[in-house]
Nucleic acid binder design. Sequence first.
RNA 1: GGCUCCGUAGCUCAGUUGGAUAGAGCAACUGACUUCUAAUCAGUAGGUCGCAGGUUCGAAUCCUGCCGGAGUCACCA
Length: 612
Amino acid sequence: MRVREYLTEHLQRLLKQHFSLDIAAKDLLINVTRPEFAGEYTLVVFPLAGRLKMAPPQAAEAIGALAVEHLRVREYNVVKGFLNLSLEPALWMEFLDEVRSSDQYGQRASKDQTVMVEFSSPNTNKPLHLGHIRNILLGWSMYEILSAAGYHVIRTQIINDRGIAICKSMLAWQKWGEGATPESTGVKGDHLVGEYYVLFETQLRQEYQTWQQTTEALHLYENQKGPDETPDAFFARYKNEYFNTASTLGREAREMLIRWEDNDPDTVALWKQMNQWVYDGFDETYARLGVEFDSIYYESDTYLLGKSIVEQGLHAGVFYRQDDGSVWVDLEDQGMDQKILQRKDGTSVYITQDIGTAVQRYEDHGADRMIYVVADEQNYHFEVLFAICKLLEQPFAEGMHHLSYGMVELPHGKMKSREGTVVDADDLMDDVREEARTIAMEKGAINDLPEEEREDIITKIGMAALKYHMIRVQPQRRMVFDPAESVDMQGQTGPYIQNAYVRIRSILRRLDEEKTVDTRPYQPSEHEMELLVHLSEYPTEIEKAADQYDPSVIANYAYKLAKLYHKFYSEHRVLSAESEEARGFRLHLSEGVANVIAHSMNLLGIQMPHKM
RNA sequence: GGCUCCGUAGCUCAGUUGGAUAGAGCAACUGACUUCUAAUCAGUAGGUCGCAGGUUCGAAUCCUGCCGGAGUCACCA
């Protein structure tokens, strides 16, 4: 029983039969009735009044009378152009029975469509950080939400395992690592590799500073400085240039990259080993975050994929070759720029690899849609990518979507791994777990449990706090994260929602199995009704979250559900209700709420504890 | 400068395919645990929805212009 669908469908039929009015379902504006008015659902009649050739109140009256006569509507009232409908209690009982007896309420029928979601997509030269956490949580919950909405979803990532960055870590390890391994040092593999990346940058900075004192550097400054440019400003600007020209470390790193591209056995072996350390570390972090993938693409496998596409595009005349041999696409008539696709030496660039990877994925999985969870700094890149795929008339081009999200920043500004100002994913998870532990110990409710169970609960609470904090904000908003202020555990938070679930579990634990649950009709109070109506909205919210690619829809829905339950809990007794009917109804209502809380939070990757 | 995103209470955010008196949390203050878990609930206080016009029965929501912030406009990824 989907209450909203029942109303939509039957009101449509009513309008057609009695007024010969054809209204599409999406044009029938049905809202949840505001608490200050009687009724559960409200039909907004203003848009219909004109077509009915009646004033809005008269039209609402007419429809309301028909609804009471022909539909499962108990009564109605009209306020201006708003028609408030109260549905029959029996209909609500049917709904409640469904939602409390299944933990899959909200799951939509299969749409027979495959969607690929790409997320995480890390570099292999450093561990995952706060930014990845936002990315991963968004990607994961989109996977869950789209699955719930009836799609077949494939989770994937592209691992950026090649290029100059990983060579920096490799070179530093070779020069100064003295054979250190994760085993010998006890350092998690991705962290170990990250340490050498940072070490490289530190050494490079020193080398650069020493070089700035040389006469060669001073000459450069004198010759190339801008008007009024200080040496500091000039050398800050010149840094990349230095790395690519005068720097010894830069030259060594580039040489290593060349050896790698030439398949030099030693270099490849080192590369494989260090990457493996990183992957082992990532796997641990992914496991803690509760995520996994169905397919993984490695840039080292796909970076050459663009070649044949470039050929295709040249043949089709949508690309062109410049005199120096480089290949370009002109997107100026679409408001974009000219974009290089292949260097004059024949090597492919980032966007070409992305086209290649997309084609490969379509061949592998035949997905109708591909969703890229990538930060908003790459908005333009994806616009261009999608435009090119359309020009190439790729079958998947229309189904591509960039789930763009705002970067996570620290109070002082952006995180910079080179400068060591990143919030590490593992550290952050440790911190929130400790915070959860401190609070749990203070409250004392789980102190008597066996250690294993207690740790499990503490982890669930900490992760809920962290995940909810990250997901509750709409993706496109950028967010500031202050590591000094621990993640909240009170108010609109993950633990608050878990607490509502725990309260229900506690009631159900105390339920006397011998005693029957009364199912006779019961007229719910206003608050009980509000809770019931909100429960019934769950499938609609899933569809909304899926359509808008926005998990925060679910986060806000779950919060409101928990809030309504907490309020209900404080105003009503369940086990010792004033009547058997009330007791039965409230037990079922509580079960329904527990089911939907657990289901909706699971869509966000958040687990429910039974006690806290 | 072009394009994209953001601007709602002191802070963090909901609410936008145009609907009823713009809602939460945090922080502050006041109450409520012998009663199913107080990580809770109730209350007080806090708003020119960035600014100015326009569209209409109705605008935080749509349009135009402006102001402020972020990103991007690499033969980096």
